[in-house]
Design a protein around this nucleic acid. Sequence first.
DNA 1: CTGAAAGCGCTAACAA
DNA 2: TTGTTAGCGCTTTCAG
Lengths: 344, 344
Amino acid sequence: MQNNRASIADLAKALNLSPSTVSRALNDNSVISAATRLRVQQLAQELNYHPNHLAAGLRTGRSNLLGVLVPHIEGTFFASVVHGIETVATKAGFKVMICQSNEDVEHEKRNIDTLINAQVEGILVSLSRTTHDTRHFEKVHQRGIPLVFFDRMLETLGVNAVVLDDYQGAYQVTTHLIEQGCRRIAHFAGPQHLNIYHNRRLGYLAALRTYGLAEAEELVITSDMTLADGVAGMEQLLALPAPQRPDGLFSASDFSLVGALQTLKEHGLRVPQDMLLAGFSNEIFTSFTEPRLTSVDQRCELLGQETVRLFLEIREAGATNFQARRVVLPPHLLIRESSTRPPA
Amino acid sequence: MQNNRASIADLAKALNLSPSTVSRALNDNSVISAATRLRVQQLAQELNYHPNHLAAGLRTGRSNLLGVLVPHIEGTFFASVVHGIETVATKAGFKVMICQSNEDVEHEKRNIDTLINAQVEGILVSLSRTTHDTRHFEKVHQRGIPLVFFDRMLETLGVNAVVLDDYQGAYQVTTHLIEQGCRRIAHFAGPQHLNIYHNRRLGYLAALRTYGLAEAEELVITSDMTLADGVAGMEQLLALPAPQRPDGLFSASDFSLVGALQTLKEHGLRVPQDMLLAGFSNEIFTSFTEPRLTSVDQRCELLGQETVRLFLEIREAGATNFQARRVVLPPHLLIRESSTRPPA
DNA sequence: CTGAAAGCGCTAACAA
DNA sequence: TTGTTAGCGCTTTCAG
């Protein structure tokens, strides 16, 4: 009978045992005699037995599945986070199911249903750019499924979340620019309904205030943070009358920053001599440009790992009576040539 | 009874129907009267009913799960491939389970078991760097689970696979360098037991032969293809006596190429004036360096999509009686400044 | 230490 | 068009 797929029933029959005994033997239940355990496990190996997790899950109510919902997975950031998630989740015995919202709320809603249907034991989410309210997550809560946000979230009170301290990161990087001598610092900002871009802007403004620098409306440019947006943004800045021109730029995204750098060069301006630059995310390419770009590292992998850890904690405590918690990771400023004032 | 989780039985009871009728109504079975269908679906909505896919899967023998096994997911390449996979798989009604081997065969073996246990309906694999034989995939075959390799595979006959035409890509890019006037072209090669690096080297050699150029041992440097390896490799090339120095370089990885570029600059040499450069993979940063780097695009997303398509085909035909097929995607050479001979 | 029996939630014959 | 019945493969009382 060494056919396609052996079941517990098959093993039981072949060994003249009951299914329950076989099940116990396979699961290393301590109550089973060493002898039968061995017999069972050997035959299992021989027949190439593989447990059916669907069946076990149905019976026990545990799927060992963990749902992850990200806006997309191309690009460094989410890929690294997912890597971190996968690592810790696997160690804890979970399989990871990945869904992408493609930055679209409707997708996001459908994905949530998919994950619920798959009986995942927890859901880890980073919101799509087009998500402005989170009512579609209520049913997750209702079903008692632990829900943890990471990176992108809405500032709703009482949700579990793991985020980078974007405010601190922005504050530090802006302070650094000021200390390097900048007095008019421009800021490329992202969509403000997203916590991350909002906090980066706040951190930037706070640093200005701390040092008594005036904030200038014409120096803050909000966009979707692509490379092209960076090009457009820098053109806009360079079009300002000379006294209003910035001497430094903090971009909330490294992509826009590269656009800005390219534009500066096209105009015959040099970095850092003519303008200091700093970005956010520590994308891999920030070390490949000339000059290399100062940036704030987001601890992507750690972020993923901490997200799973928080999930495990919630699960342990029981989803419903867990006091919602927010884990805030310290950012890490990486100073490179683009923001280092050259000796005069 | 609008408790945590409603089941079909609950709906049936509430509506005075049999479970089968409810099931049929929910699945839009054409045999059900419009009226009952509506009643059922409305109540389902109201009670926030979600089907239990584990149960359905157990019953129907279909899990709607697709297993994906990659060496890792950080970095652009696999992330993009997975993106492509996810997109097509979702459209076909599959959920994707992702595992990473971390470039380790033992992990790979364990992951295969995990996926089998999860009752996936197909497995898509890109081999770990440390995999030298593929016996652990036999049980997948035995169980009649469609198996498709993508990108990294062993040259075993009769497996299903989707790969880029690395040979062609390398041939094209080398030819391009020759046509730009290069006569001594160096090559940074990767681990040769992996089909991709092997084929890139063969393509490089073939192009040399076509144009009657001698291949020089000292110009082919094999490494693990990191940025640091590129630095070391270029140092090695520059240490050659002047007449033996290359006038062009084709690196099988963009990362090594960046290392080479940085090293050239440190030595006061200019690209493309003093040496032409070309790489492989079209990593995002190839457009951010100066000069921008010529590279071969790998069609990552398409690769992922085609892999799923091949899986669907196999499934359709029945895994066992499907004639193994290999899909080879044409590469796409992107010529940028680093390989364009400037007017003399 | 082992076995018998029931049931997780759903679907698919077959019957009505 | 609807209902009855059985069972997917596994685990878990409860009894022996």
